[in-house]
Every structure is written in structure tokens, then in C-alpha cells.
Design a protein around this nucleic acid. Structure first.
Lengths: 196, 196
DNA sequence: TTTGCATAGTTAACAATGTTTATATAAATA
DNA sequence: TATTTATATAAACATTGTTAACTATGCAAA
């Protein structure tokens, strides 16, 4: 009786790990109760003892992916000079992460979330994620008088919407059809927003 | 035998009309082979005599919705003064249309398109739709020396990405949670892009 | 030690949905 | 009229999410 909680978390972890691997690999289309459970080494109904439903399980992956993305971005931009150059690098790394794992973008922005009421924190977490990645650097820009406080709020949102829109059209609608053209567009758009 | 083509188009029209009504009303979640066929007055297998599969049918609705949206926008902005003010009005009307029919946004931007190869024209049509709505007005701005040709290309894309991103986050992730706040953000973002 | 119970896990079944195959009916043609 | 063709449907199947009923295993109390 002593370690019930630990055991439960462990089993949940097996399912989560299986789901995350599949999301990074084949994407959402390959995910279903049976395939996750098989990879986790359990019968598919066992999943329902640990998660309310499939939706709950896959949205628990979001937090982990955000941590992973944040690590990736941090590593990618650590040599960049501070200020708008760093913000640009962060944004590009963020885009690179989702381009590498389209299934994760799908999960975060496209997949329908049922039971929306209780998931409000998750949706806000997702929508404001790029904001948080840049917030420290924006603070630096304000301190150095590179930009005003009011402008930062607008720029933050501009980056958020533009990046989300670009990723949606590229990953979900193949527009532009070519990766190189996509990257060029990204470059131009970020420069335009940051006034570089 | 003489009017086979006409008859076929007529029946297809019944299915399409049924699908469009449901998309505007309940959205994609309410759509399935059986419900469409029932509303069209046919058995569900009959649908497969007129369409390759369900995907083909629902993406045939896209063109019609674009026409409808274009009409709506035109009507909405006809009294606006020409130039950037009109572009702003067009963009707001475009956003209003999709806010009114979230199911149509879902269909155009979120729903997975299978058989992507043959659907390339459709995806491009969707992605560049806001561009086309504004193109005539941009031309006017160039003629009046309000803006340079090069800037127009960047601004067009900026509007496209920003609007798509805002709609995705609002309609699919409830971010912001409040309609009024969403409209305020729209206003600010458009002004920022158009330098008003 | 044995009996009873809670927990974990599985099998079986059901419901919804997309799709295919075979069958019946209506229309057209020889 | 008989035969062929087009049209529509019924029946069936596959996939997937979900629930209910059953089994087994380990632990606690008598």
C-alpha cells in the first residue's frame, strides 16, 4: 500500500512515453488507444484506468513537449548577441522545432480539445508559449531603451500571430510548397516585425 | 440519355447543399456520410456514386464558401474610402465572416486534406484568399504612390499570416477567451501592419 | 493459515463512422 | 418484349473510441 501513487505515475509514464514517441514519429494520425497501449505493453482498456479518455492522455503530452522545445531553443540561441537579434533567433528556432515535428504542431494548435472548460489553462499555455520564450529578452530591450514597454506588447502579439499563421499554412496547407521558400518568408516577416 | 451530365450535377448539388448547410450550422463535427445523405434525401452509399469519398465532397464546398465570403466582404466595405482604410475594412470583414461560421474556418484551414497531391490548387486557393480580396485595393495604393510595389508584397503576406494566426488561436484555442478582447486585438494588429 | 476484498488487468461487446460489395429496381435500347 | 445499362439501396466489413463484465493477484483481517 505504501507506494501506490508512485506506481500509478510509473504506469501513466509508460503510456505517455509511448504516445509521445508516436506523436514525434508518425504524428496524430497513427495514434489510437490500441496502438498506444500496445507500445506501452498493456491491453488497450487498461489505458482507461489511468486516463479519463484518449484526449486527456494526448494533451498531457503538451507540457512535456513545451519543455523539450524550450530546451531546444535555449541551446540553439545561446551564442546569439542579446536584444532583437536574439529574439529573432529564438523565433526561428521555435519554428524549426515545429517544422521538425509536425505532429507536435498538430497536437498543440490543430487538434480539437474536448471538454474545453477544464482545458482553459492548457490552451492559454499553448497560445502564449512563444511569448514566454522571448519575454526575458524583451525585458532586456526595455532596460536598454531599445524599445518602449507599450511597443513590446504589440510586437509580442505580432510575432505570436504571424508565426502561428505561417506554421499553420506551411504544415497544414503546404503553402508555400517548398521548404526553402518557407524559410525565406520567415526571415522576411521576422525582420519586418522587428524592424531590422 | 440526353441530359445525363445535368442530372448528375443536380444530384451532386443536393449533397453539396446538405453538406454546406451543416458546415455553416453545426460545423465539421456534425458531418458524416450518413447525416449528409439523410439531409440530401438519399441513402448513404449513394454518396459514393457521385464522390470519390467524403473528403472530396467537403472540400468541394470550399469554392462556394469563398464566393460567399467574397460577396459578404464586398457588401460590407462598399462605402469605405479607398486605400488603406478599405484594406483594413476588408480584413475585418473577412475575420467577421469566419467568426460567424467557425465550421468554415475549420474546413478551410484545420481539416486534414487527404490525397494532397491533387488538392494543391485548393490549398493555394485557400492560403492566398485574403490576398486576392485586397489585391485590387493594393493596386490602387501603388497607383496613388501611397506605397511601393515591394512593400505591398510584404504587407500582403503579413496580413495573411497575422489574420490566419489570430483566427486559429481564437476559434480553435479560445485565445483570447473574450470576443471583445479579440476584436480589440484585431484592430490593433491591423493598424500596426498598415501603419495607421 | 485461510478467507475475503480491493486493485489491476483483460476479454468481450457495443456504438459510431467510412467504405466496399452485392443486389434490386428503374430506365433505355435493341 | 427482352436485354442491357444506370441508379439506388441493403448488407456487410474495418477501424476506432468507449464501457461493462469477468479474472486474477496480492494484501489484510479473522
Amino acid at each position: 500500500m505504501q507506494n501506490k501513487e508512485i506506481q500509478e505515475q510509473r504506469i501513466k509514464g509508460y503510456f505517455l512515453e509511448a504516445a509521445k514517441e508516436m506523436l514525434k514519429g508518425e504524428g496524430l494520425k497513427s495514434i489510437n488507444v490500441r496502438s498506444i497501449a500496445e507500445r506501452a505493453g498493456y491491453s488497450y482498456t487498461t489505458l482507461y484506468h489511468y486516463f479519463k479518455d484518449l484526449n486527456e492522455l494526448i494533451f498531457l503530452c503538451v507540457k512535456d513537449f513545451q519543455d523539450e522545445c524550450e530546451q531546444f531553443v535555449k541551446e540553439e540561441v545561446k551564442k546569439e548577441p542579446r536584444g532583437t537579434e536574439k529574439i529573432k533567433a529564438i523565433t526561428k528556432a521555435y519554428i524549426q522545432y515545429f517544422t521538425q515535428y509536425p505532429g507536435i504542431f498538430e497536437l498543440c494548435f490543430i487538434e480539437k480539445i474536448s471538454n474545453i472548460g477544464s482545458k482553459q489553462p492548457t490552451t492559454e499555455l499553448i497560445a502564449t508559449f512563444p511569448d514566454r520564450l522571448c519575454s526575458e529578452e524583451w525585458k532586456y530591450c526595455i532596460d536598454k531603451n531599445i524599445i518602449t514597454k507599450e511597443k513590446v506588447d504589440i510586437f509580442t502579439k505580432q510575432l505570436r500571430f504571424t508565426v502561428t499563421g505561417m506554421l499553420l499554412l506551411y504544415l497544414n496547407r503546404m503553402q508555400p510548397a517548398d521548404y526553402k521558400e518557407f524559410i525565406d518568408t520567415v526571415e522576411i516577416q521576422i525582420n519586418q516585425i522587428l524592424n531590422i
